[in-house]
Amino acid sequence: MTALTEPEVQAWVGRTKEDPPGDIVCERGYILHWLEATENANPLYWDDAVAQDLTGGPTAPPSMLSAWMRPLQFVPGRNEKRMPLSLHFALKEALGLPEGIVAYNEMTLGVPVRPGDSVRTMQRIREISEPKTRRLGTGRSWIIDVTYTNQNGEVCGVETYEMFAYVREPKP
């Protein structure tokens, strides 16, 4: 756990960070992988005629939004490791909480993401809890809002995550 004082911890509330667009643009192969993983037979994503009729062409499933902002794990010449939701990971590090889970998620969806679109995020810490102990360990929870925009500045969606980051309790 961190040696930060409570006011220093709470000073993170309201901080924002904008991450650059993800390393990949929306593309059909990844959409098919998503559909494969969720055994999703929705013809909107498999039948181009249905997609043309309903959405004016192919789109990605709305719940797939966060896939498009995640950095590649390897890029030639890139020395620093990029993390998705970098503000969340910066807070985890500042608080000395190595483990983390997502406890709650909320999505409000806007314009569809289409093949060729790139997505960037703006993140904001909304609140940070007092220290708490749960079954997994001792740490804090926080709420972070994430706004996703496409290359045209249109909002594709807003997500809210409640994270719990913690240090595991030593086994007796």
């Binding site: 999703n40 037979a41 709305p62 719940s63 998620n105």
Partner: peptide
Amino acid sequence: QGGWIERYLTDWTGPAGRLGKMRFRM
């Protein structure tokens, strides 16, 4: 999990169903 939930919902609505908002607690 969000993807499975969306799939579950659109299995029911068909392709014209459009997800607007969802919340889930794990």
